[in-house]
């Protein structure tokens, strides 16, 4: 009984998560070929051990060298990192005051405020990104509004620029930033702030000396929760970004679907994962530390 309970989800995950991942790794070491499937070597198990040895000898790091040769790729990685980092920063800038306001709101409002933050998360991601196309386009609502109040005299191009990508990421990932920060701020013992004031702080000083350092775990968690998915984002750069917006998710997609270069796409994926390992480990550490502090 217990074995079966472990075995079923285990085997499922092995087959549909680990094995596919191994295949990606394998293909990333293969060569591009004009065939179906479009790569070589193919593992032919009918030739037995010898076939495997031959197959093994044909795997190489060529695609990875290719990635370093062509500056498109490392520029795409750098640009993804930059876009993800900046968007995370903007999300923090927008999210912290919201979380702070929620934590200070009267207790009976808070469930409703929580619901209002979570609600967009349940509605389609695609629709939320789509909503910004109509706002940011040249004839869009933002330009209409800015023209109407006389702040600009001609429409400015926002859609299909990196700025639109920042806005899109900030908008769609906002709940991921607000919720962990709210969780730490809500737990914050109000008497700590009173103690700070009692010991001579003004309210603003108490905010910097107590609230900010104590909300750090939530801020870090929120930043990682935005940064990690933003790094591999595909939908937002392809709908809101311009043709020159380089994000690795988009590059991978195009490499795969447009160029049909599966080995290079796989190599791009492997490197993206390697880059992601660092923030993921840092994130885990932060969570671990928070759990320990909680006990």
């Amino acid at each position: 009984m217990r074995r079966l309970l472990i075995a079923i989800p285990y085997i499922w995950l092995l087959l549909l998560f680990l094995v596919p991942f191994g295949i990606v790794l394998k293909i990333s070491l293969s060569d591009y070929a004009l065939s179906i499937p479009p790569y070589t070597p193919q593992l032919d198990l009918s030739t037995g051990w010898q076939g495997f040895a031959e197959f093994w000898s044909q795997l190489d790091m060529e695609n990875y060298w290719f990635l370093t040769d062509d500056d498109l790729y490392w520029k795409a990685y750098l640009s993804s990192l930059q876009i993800a980092a900046l968007s995370t920063f903007f999300t923090l800038l927008v999210g912290f005051p919201i979380a702070y306001g929620m934590a200070n709101a009267p207790e009976h409002w808070r469930p409703t405020l929580m619901l209002l933050i979570i609600l967009p998360f349940w509605t389609s991601f695609l629709i939320r990104v789509y909503a910004w196309i109509g706002i940011l386009s040249n004839e869009g609502f933002l330009n209409q509004f800015l023209l109407a109040i006389g702040l600009i005299s001609a429409p400015i191009k926002i859609l299909n620029t990196d700025i639109a990508v920042y806005i899109g990421i900030t908008y769609t990932y906002l709940p991921f930033m607000v919720l962990p920060i709210y969780a730490t701020l809500e737990k914050l013992d109000g008497s700590l702030l009173e103690a700070a004031e009692d010991l001579g702080c003004t309210r603003l000083q108490a905010f910097w000396a107590v609230t900010v350092p104590l909300s750090k775990p939530g801020v870090i968690a929120g930043c990682f929760l935005v940064f990690i998915p933003a790094l591999g984002e595909f939908v937002i750069p392809s709908l809101l970004g311009g043709s020159d917006t380089l994000m690795i998710g988009k590059v991978l997609w195009e490499e795969f679907f447009s160029n049909r270069d599966w080995p290079v796409a796989s190599a791009v994926a492997i490197i993206l994962l390697l880059i992601l390992v660092i923030p993921i480990i840092l994130f885990q550490r932060n969570e671990q530390k928070q759990r320990e502090a909680g006990n």
Binding site: I23, V24, A269, L276
Partner: peptide, 9 residues
């Protein structure tokens, strides 16, 4: 990242 999950499957 979804692109990797999708690609691998």
């Amino acid at each position: 990242p979804e692109v990797i999950t999708g690609l691998s499957l």
